[in-house]
Structures are given as structure tokens and as C-alpha cells.
């Protein structure tokens, strides 16, 4: 009766590991919450809960300010491998 689920059930990856604080210096810890163009992925796609999404958002914005991750990846400034050195 119910429509068949297209993707597997999402869950908050941070709740699973009981994360209380996300360090902005550790880019790999929030990498999956970033899109290919380094935008913040919405909660409906990553499955993060509200509490952890707020933490991720703060960590990403701090990482952007300290030049750990780019603000934007555009076609004017083509980088061969944007993930290099992160």
C-alpha cells in the first residue's frame, strides 16, 4: 500500500556515534554534509538530526572562515582536484 522506499532509511550518523561536539579543524568529520560544490547539504538528504545539523553548520562555517574548505567552487576558478589537501 505504502509507496516503496526509493532509498534506504536515513539516520543521524552523529547520534549513532554519540557525538557531542564537532571540531571544525577535522574536515573529514563533516565531509559527507557537504555537496560537491561545498554547499551545506540539507538535513533531508543527509539524515542528520536537528541538533547535529546545527553543530555541522557551525563547524562548516568556521572551517570556511579559516580557509580549510572553500566558500564556493565555481567555473571561473577551476581547480583540478578540490579535495586535495583537505
Amino acid at each position: 500500500m505504502a509507496e516503496k522506499r526509493k532509498y534506504k532509511k536515513r539516520y543521524c550518523k552523529y547520534c549513532e556515534t554519540k557525538t557531542d561536539y564537532i571540531d571544525f579543524k577535522n574536515v573529514s568529520s563533516f565531509k559527507f554534509s557537504l555537496s560537491e560544490r561545498f554547499k551545506i547539504m540539507p538535513r533531508r538528504l543527509t539524515g542528520n538530526c536537528k541538533r547535529h545539523q546545527d553543530m555541522v553548520t557551525i563547524a562548516i562555517k568556521r572551517a570556511r572562515q579559516t580557509a580549510m574548505i572553500p566558500y564556493i567552487v565555481d567555473r571561473q576558478n577551476v581547480v583540478t582536484n578540490p579535495f586535495e589537501g583537505l
Binding site: 579543524k25 573529514s28 565531509k31 559527507f32 582536484n81 579535495f83 589537501g85
Partner: peptide, 8 residues
Amino acid sequence: APKVEVAP
């Protein structure tokens, strides 16, 4: 931390 990550 500084390791190169290819696929997000």
C-alpha cells in the same frame, strides 16, 4: 586529518 580524500 590532512590526508587526501577523493570521494566525499
